[in-house]
Every structure is written in C-alpha cells, then in structure tokens.
Amino acid sequence: MIAKSEIYRDDLASKFGMWLFLFTEMLLFGGLFIVYSVYRYRNSGAFHLAAQELSVTIGTINTIILLTSSTTIAMSITAIRKQDKRMALLLIGITIILGLAFLVNKYFEWGEHIRQHIYPGSSVLSSRGQGDVLFYGLYFFMTGLHALHIIVGLIFIGFVTTFISINRINSDRYVLLENCGLYWHLVDMIWIFLFPLFYLIT
C-alpha cells in the first residue's frame, strides 16, 4: 500500500488532456458549422423546404434523451464520490440505455429517409436540385458523425462501468469517470446545436 500511495497522480493534468482533445472535436464540428452556414446562405430556399421534411418530434425526443443522459452521467460522479457504488452503476446504466435509445430513434429516422430514397448519391435526391443535395449531404454527414461519437461514447462508458464494478474507479480515484462524462457532455452539446440548425430553423 505504501508503495502505491507514493505514486504521484495529477488529476488536473488528466482533465487538461481531455479538454485539449475536446477542443479538437469542437474545431472539427465548428468547421462543419461553417460549411453549413455558407451553404445555407447560398441555398436558403432549398434548405428552408428540405428542413421542413425532418420530424421535429423525433428531434425533440432525442434532444431530451441526450440531456437526460448527460444529467445521469454527471450524477454518477456525485454517487461515486459519496462512495455509493450501486447508485453510480445504476446512473451510468441509465446513461447507456438512453444512449442506445437515441441510436434506435436515429435508426428509424434514417430508415424513413432511405425508404423514401433520400440519401447521398440517390437519383431521387439528385433530381431535386443542388440545394437539397447539399442539405441532405450535410444532414447525413453531421448527424452521422455525431451518432459515431455516441457509439464511441457508449464504448467509453462501457469500459468505465467495468472499472467501477471492479473498484478501479472509486471515491478516491474517479478522474476517468469525469473524463468520460466530459466527452459525453460534449457530444450532448454538439447535438444542442445540430437540433435547431437542422430541425427547427426552417
């Protein structure tokens, strides 16, 4: 035990590293938002019509799902610090279920578009003109990249759950859970912007 306790650990530095990674993610999506704004400006009519075809209901439900999952993972940090392992596992389990629910909704949403032959490269979409091609190209790319981040986040949370159950993450050592939370919150925050840009502003 004595040898272990002498290992120097810097949680602030770990979090700093995570934040630096999150900055690169913010710049990645920031770049895509620039592309979106320019294309929207140049094809405002087509973007206006195409955006009306997206389901605001599914979008709103998914927003609430992600906001709730962000809350539960934030609360799991409180639980682990209060040494309540069962509560932490329960909260993180809810986060995973909500993340999966988001993906299931996305599957049905995309499935509906694809059933109507609206996907990048389809002849139906090409015949509708350049504005629609750009709108749906950006829609599929940006929400797809976001969904990919959800999948990565879920795998990350999966590892963290295992570490909590074998006590590698505990009330004294929980920076990995915090970093996992940071990643999940960032993914949530990106959705906070994707939702109005694609679903609300028509």
Binding site: M1, I2, S5, E6, I7, D10, D11, D172
Partner: peptide, 8 residues
C-alpha cells in the same frame, strides 16, 4: 496514507 494519494 490515503491523503498522500490524493492529488494536490
């Protein structure tokens, strides 16, 4: 010992 393991 625990307090030593805590970060600064």
């Amino acid at each position: 010992m625990k307090s030593m393991e805590k970060t600064v």
